[in-house]
Design a protein around this nucleic acid. Structure first.
Lengths: 328, 328
DNA sequence: GTGAAAGCGCTAACAA
DNA sequence: TTGTTAGCGCTTTCAC
């Protein structure tokens, strides 16, 4: 491997000068700088960032830890994060905790031990422990699911979105809407259930709900449970896109028809949502914006680490009405 | 920040002993080891991996650089990679190059400068430059799209899969199947076109095709192009799931009905594929296995870096017949 | 403006 | 078995 010493020797200057030249330090003779750069190019020199990071006690990487890469909501967040990070000269390490606390804490540890500049975390569950990171002086921004009050957080309006979606179902003429949501450990699951409850109580309708994991299989299971009850619901408010896929599967399996026998609204405007039959009515979350805002907030903290009051951004959701909620 | 020196002082032993204890070195007195561990725990010591990596000249991270996180094919690969990496004590840095050569080479540079143990790359285009990485002694495994012959590669049978899918369309009674595929820069796009060509030539049918980017918008554009021709096709072989979504969109927009007016087969068994109407016939690629095999191969190379002959694994694809290819 | 040298935190020779 | 120490490659004082 070619090191900075090799470059210095080749250029006939000191290592300090090479370092300064390559880092565009202001006080370096243009002639020397050029010689250093030329020598570096000739030798194919690549600065060793491990060494640089050790010396500088900082890195230009941010870790994004999400619970499930295959959830389009999170991939959209990732896009938002990446775009601003890239623009600011940072790289993003995407860590997939796969709805698994052990994996999550492994990655939290990796982030700390690699001394990343900052972490954006979508906590698997409310108990996720970011205390270590924070005491190590690494800024953290939480997305999607609130963790506690004293940390920067970017969310969307889960409860209000759920209320609106349920209300829409009721207005469309469905008399027994139910809620299919995620595990109690996920705050978003609970908030969506609460929003649903707000709407049914307002309308004087019975509350029907089932909880399971935030995945396709969970959606199937919860829907199966609901539709097997003596008094089954006639509409479903579903808490995320993966669960919606599972619900659709179970509905198809039973030969029930969406729009005639059952009404559907789901969180997240997945790419496939407008393309199924009938097209899916959704409560869209501004996932990209959640990511970009989180990254901006994080980089602010990275650059001015003076303890400021934690910020909490709550972005609005929007109801996109398509066919699946229509009663025909 | 608490360092190994602090721990040594606290435990009343030398830094070397602490290091040995914490790394489970065999030759260390159990009593001392225990004292070191206790002191570390008491102080909340976290080894600085940046320093460790610099000293050891190695890391326990592998970089996975994929062209698009929102493509379910790649997220499945990521799962495969992560599972074996985790099992072997490595962490995975997922880098999303976003079908963008500049981003890809940024991440290639980051991987090199961070001295990752190895890289798994799904090259954006055939020209991706991994020479630097290789000359830096970092093993590379290529997935999905072949790059050159002298590097480890894990692929699936694109051409044969495309041939089978097209053949199936013809057998189902569609007389003018066309191919919707990705850009010429992507080898998989070309291979799938070739497989399609094999099948139509065999059957004495005309060759109809359109190329665009491997994304939803590309699928729409290519389909629009095809269906606007004077002699439009009556069936489509589509080269990936995102393009299929775009094709579906365009088809819906035109009021054409799948199964009656047009037959469809697409690469990749996306989660939504069985759930649309009619369910999508697909050529499934063993994405998870591609990922796990690639990771295994990579870790072999990491552990025994003696130059061995490059391996090339080609995994089979399988046709899953559902409704979209049926002529009713 | 430039270079010598210290030192980031750790591991691994080497000596005891 | 344990401790002392050199040194991984870099940046950044500090003295010139």
């Amino acid at each position: 491997m070619v090191t900075i010493r090799d470059v210095a020797r080749e250029a006939g200057v000191s290592v300090a000068t090479v370092s300064r030249a390559l880092n565009n330090s202001p006080n370096v003779d243009p002639g020397y700088a050029e010689r250093a750069r030329a020598a570096a190019a000739r030798l194919g020199y690549r600065p060793n960032h491990v060494a640089r990071n050790l010396r500088r006690q900082s890195t230009e990487m941010i870790a994004l830890i999400i619970s499930d890469v295959s959830n389009p909501f999170f991939t959209a967040i990732a896009r938002g994060v990446e775009d601003v990070a890239q623009r600011e000269g940072y790289s993003v390490l995407l860590c997939n905790s796969d709805e698994n606390s052990a994996k999550e804490s492994t990655y939290l540890g990796v982030a700390e031990q690699q001394r990343v500049a900052g972490v954006i975390l979508s906590p698997h569950q409310a108990g996720s422990d970011i205390a270590r990171l924070r005491s190590a002086g690494i800024p953290v921004v939480i997305v999607d699911r609130p963790l506690s009050d004293d940390v920067d957080t970017v969310l969307s309006e889960s409860r209000e979105g759920a209320r609106l979606g349920t209300r829409h179902l009721i207005d469309a003429g469905w008399g027994r809407p139910a809620c299919v949501t995620g595990p109690v450990s996920a705050t978003t699951a609970t908030l969506r259930l609460l929003g649903y409850r707000d709407a049914v109580q307002e309308a004087g309708l019975p509350e029907i709900s089932a909880q399971s994991i935030f995945q396709q299989s969970g959606g199937s299971a919860a829907t199966r449970d609901l539709l097997s009850r003596p008094d089954p619901p006639d509409a479903l408010l579903i808490a995320n896109a993966q669960m919606a896929l599972g619900a659709l599967d179970e509905i198809r399996r039973r030969g029930i028809e969406v729009g005639r026998d059952i009404g559907l609204v789901t969180f997240d405007d997945a790419p496939w949502a407008p393309l199924i039959t009938p097209p899916m009515t959704v409560i869209a979350q501004p996932a990209y914006d959640i990511g970009s805002h989180a990254a901006e907030l994080l980089l602010d903290r990275v650059r001015s680490p003076d303890a400021q009051a934690p910020q909490r951004l709550v972005l609005p959701t929007s109801l996109i009405v398509r066919g699946s909620s229509r009663r025909s």
